[in-house]
């Protein structure tokens, strides 16, 4: 499946990760490919942002200061049950993956993630909602 700028609706992506170096470059690369990415560094900010705007897909780091990824996932699923959430983690254990999947996460990827894979997943989960 190939995507071109004209065919594709702009996917709105919310990235929650406290690694600014990582989120900055991720946002830039996503933007270059037509994904409208917003990044926040903690769960509290994410909740604020999600209150004001709507997103088609979210990428959430599992290990964060304050609210951790699992708690954010729970809040997201309450605030925007339709929004797919892809979990991203430094290292993935089977238990954490199962817990996240049970809570309704749509994906579970481990860092360092292949950007192309992440992009495809974002489009896959986000584009469906953007068109709908």
């Amino acid at each position: 499946m190939t995507w071109t700028d004209t065919e594709r609706p702009a996917v709105r992506l919310l990235i929650v990760d406290d690694e600014a170096g990582f989120t900055d470059v991720l946002c830039k690369r996503m933007a270059r490919r037509g994904v409208n990415a917003t990044s926040v560094s903690c769960g509290e900010d994410a909740v604020q942002v999600l209150r004001r705007a709507e997103f088609d897909v979210a990428i959430v780091d599992l290990k964060l200061q304050g609210m951790d990824g699992v708690e954010i996932l729970k809040v997201f699923k309450l605030m925007a049950p339709e929004m797919p959430v892809i979990m991203l983690t430094g290292h993935g254990s089977d238990e954490a993956r199962e817990a996240c999947m049970k809570l309704g996460a749509e994906g579970y990827l481990s860092k360092p993630v292949d950007f192309e894979l992440l992009f495809v997943k974002t489009l896959h989960w986000g584009a469906g909602r953007a068109t709908a």
Partner: peptide
């Protein structure tokens, strides 16, 4: 485990940055 976890983040950034340059 702790070290591996900590290393993952900078490595991820390096990969992303390289990808960005490529883009």
């Amino acid at each position: 485990a702790g070290i591996a976890h900590e290393i993952n983040n900078p490595v991820a950034i390096m990969i992303e940055e390289a990808g960005w340059v490529g883009d």
